[in-house]
Design a protein around this nucleic acid. Structure first.
Lengths: 106, 106
DNA sequence: TTTATATATCTAGAATAATAGATATGAATT
DNA sequence: AATTCATATCTATTATTCTAGATATATAAA
């Protein structure tokens, strides 16, 4: 079983202390039912493009991009570039490790 | 199994997005080894007094009192007054429910 | 090779959090 | 009842986060 260090736990908690960012993580659990189908790609294997996430939140493009970058910085999500689009998917390993760490540390 | 609503999850995450507050929660898990013995009371059944927690953090009295009040507001800790002192202990039920909720929601 | 599109980054203002000093409250002590 | 002690609350300052508009970049399309 893997655990995060205290600092990483706090950093991830910061990211999760915002309702929009938590929602994004939740939506990415089931892209099929939370987002329209992509055009260039007929699957969600690499996640969801920024524009779809932005549309769903109603916040500005720059805000959502900033959020996703923050989530990526603590490895909660993984970006993949396909042409003009960046797709973001959950990093299940880190999410699980974070919860394990809370269970142990907290 | 009990779960918290999304708003409560975010509010608790906010409290946990600060290293000092996370440390306080951790220290309260094992008061015997983290704090000196109380004078008026020879046990930690109701938790630890504010002064001891303040000493351990090195932050000001008002800051620690504010932190503990914030933790109490989301039910992470339970205060008990004995004479001049307020003792704070962990609310294990809420901590467990928070982790359960993350496991399910996240 | 200009133009359009998607995303990222920069810049800045508004909102919130961190933090401590001063003051208030509540309980014990003198 | 005046004093002391522990904690809480008020007030103010600084630091950080939120958020969006403007701009930059990277890719695709014309």
């Amino acid at each position: 079983m893997l655990y995060l260090c205290p600092m990483d736990i706090v950093e991830i908690s910061k990211v999760l202390s915002n309702e929009t960012r938590v929602n994004i993580l939740k939506w990415l659990k089931d892209p099929e039912s939370n987002f329209p189908p992509h055009q260039d790609i007929d699957h969600f294997d690499d996640g969801v493009c920024v524009g779809f996430i932005q549309d769903k939140t109603g916040l500005s493009q720059s805000t959502i991009s900033t959020y996703l970058t923050a989530m990526q910085n603590v490895d909660l999500v993984i970006p993949t570039r396909h042409g003009k689009w960046t797709y973001y998917r959950r990093n299940e390993k880190v999410i699980e490790t974070y919860i394990n760490s809370l269970s142990k540390e907290l």
